[in-house]
């Protein structure tokens, strides 16, 4: 018992004050990209052709955050002249086309499905389905339950049964072998329900585009309400998305 108490004192209070207090992430973190539309076109073309995810639209001068894995290759290639990745981790959107961005994103809190705030603002129970990903997004969702983020203090929990859930959180590129399990879980959630796609894989197939074993985009199977990009999405990105969408 004494040992437990001693450790308790040593560990201290670690919960973040976010969203009340601001958090600054480290320099090397790659969050929302900011595009310089006046960059020379050869540089833009080069970035677009070197992007491993084909996420850069050189004509429209936007990056598709749903395909982007935030590797930072374009930033290094253009030496920051075309794109810079900021430390802004608030990268989530309510529609797929908002993810095609030059650095400006609409305010997530003003999305078009405000009824979800009334329904789930004070208590949101989510069922997570891991549909074939690499487990990185799951790891950064799991960490939301640990003391630093402490998701439960906002009334948000991950539940064991889809019958108890208000919505489904999908990670992974929805492999063929998981499709039926995913759809059955989705159908088991009582209405009204919300669908959240977390990570590049769930939004666009991620690094696995082109493989016949996966599905390119959760929204080709079920309508998605909230898109959280990343590879994996930082836990603060997940937290920001959940708090702004539902509260």
């Amino acid at each position: 018992m004494l040992s437990t108490l001693k450790n308790r004192f040593e560990q201290g209070y670690k919960t973040t004050g976010y969203p009340k207090t601001k958090i600054e992430l480290v320099d090397r973190y790659r969050g929302l990209p900011e595009i310089n539309k006046d960059a020379p076109s050869e540089i833009i073309e080069k970035c677009a052709s070197e992007c491993p995810q084909e996420a850069i639209d050189a004509k429209r001068k936007v990056i598709d955050l749903g395909r982007c894995v935030f590797c930072g290759g374009c930033e290094r290639l253009s030496e920051g002249k075309f794109v810079k990745f900021t430390q802004n981790f608030e990268t989530s959107t309510a529609t797929r086309d908002h993810l095609f961005t030059d650095g400006n994103l609409p305010a997530l809190a003003e999305h078009s499905k405000q009824h979800f705030k009334k329904l789930f603002g004070r208590s949101l129970q989510l069922r997570q389905v891991s549909a074939g990903g690499c487990n990185a997004c799951e790891a950064d969702l799991n960490v939301l339950a640990t003391p630093f983020f402490d998701l439960a203090r906002f009334g948000i929990n991950f539940v064991a049964s889809p019958r108890h859930a208000d919505g489904i959180v999908v990670t992974g590129p929805i492999s063929k072998n998981m499709k039926t399990a995913l759809m059955t879980t989705f159908e088991a959630i009582p209405d009204p329900k919300v669908v959240i796609a977390v990570g590049s894989c769930a939004i666009s197939g991620g690094p696995f585009r082109g493989s016949p074993e996966i599905t390119e985009g959760l929204d080709s199977l079920i309508p998605v309400d909230l898109y959280i990009p990343g590879c994996p999405s930082h836990p603060l990105t997940n937290l920001h998305a959940l708090l702004n969408y539902f509260k």
């Binding site: 491993p52 590797c71 992974g172 894989c201 690094p207 082109g210």
Partner: peptide, 23 residues
């Protein structure tokens, strides 16, 4: 979670190789 990675690696462009391997 079978995504067909070994097959995918034989016909993607080199620039994608590290991204797939890391995933």
């Amino acid at each position: 979670q079978h995504r067909g990675i070994e097959n995918l690696l034989t016909h993607i462009k080199n620039k994608r190789l590290p991204i797939v391997i890391e995933s």
